[in-house]
């Protein structure tokens, strides 16, 4: 099944200067009851964005109207905790196409990539540079080029290289989907099952 594809992001950014942002903050557990993938954006960072009565908390960055864009800048170790893919769905549904941090939790990174939400890991220094630029001028435009694996501020001509695994890069650029890839290997899977000795996993 063809998915969303992504080659370049050129956008302003929302600076979330918090470290160890866990998936319970990105999307609290009480919103995990839905059985579809849609509509999670409304609940993104729910308890940081709104008070219990549903009034927006003015200090939270998503409530500051001058900060907008497809890119979320976040502190070290983003997406830690629960494996809920709903966290990636919420970020993407809200309108983000990339999260930029100096470190990502493992499962979140996979989940994000599987939803064409680009996790861009930069050095701590470069992250600070991006934060400072955006905090100083919210109109700062950041460019992310997936093909070139580069992120930076075009107006300043300063870029940094980022890693993305070669397989996922192809998937993100072309909108390819993992299930299609694995199923193309069905013959290999069946052969593996036949060949396998010492498998006690199904003894009952």
């Amino acid at each position: 099944m063809k998915k969303k594809s992504l080659t370049k992001i050129i956008s302003t950014a929302v600076p979330l200067a918090m470290e160890n942002v866990d998936t319970d903050q990105i999307l609290p557990a009480r919103y995990l009851k839905a059985t579809t993938r849609e509509g999670f954006g409304e609940k993104l960072f729910r308890d940081w964005r709104f008070d219990p009565e549903g009034n927006p908390k003015p200090h939270f960055v998503l409530n500051q109207p001058h900060y907008t864009g497809e890119i979320l800048l976040a502190g070290h170790n983003f997406g830690v905790g629960s494996s809920r893919e709903h966290a990636a769905w919420a970020l993407s549904d809200y309108g983000f196409n990339a999260v930029v941090s100096s470190f990502f939790a493992d499962i979140f990174k996979n989940n994000a990539l599987n939803n064409t939400l680009l996790p861009v890991q930069v050095t701590p220094n470069f992250l600070q540079y991006l934060f400072e630029a955006v905090l100083q001028d919210h109109k700062t435009v950041i460019a992310i080029d997936v093909e070139e694996q580069a992120i930076g501020i075009p107006s300043e001509g300063k870029y940094e290289h980022f890693d993305i695994n070669p397989y996922k890069k192809v998937c993100v650029i072309n909108g390819y989907d993992d299930v299609d890839y694995i199923l193309s290997l069905r013959k290999e899977i069946e052969q593996f099952e036949k060949k396998r000795k010492d498998d006690f996993s199904l003894a009952f």
Binding site: I107, N110, N111, Y167, V179, Y181, I182, I189
Partner: peptide
């Protein structure tokens, strides 16, 4: 190890998962 929902779909569909 724990996985996300897209990966759950992979495993349901193929009994395999893509992993580095």
């Amino acid at each position: 190890f724990g996985i996300g929902t897209s990966e759950v779909e992979q495993v349901l569909a193929s009994q395999c998962i893509l992993q580095y």
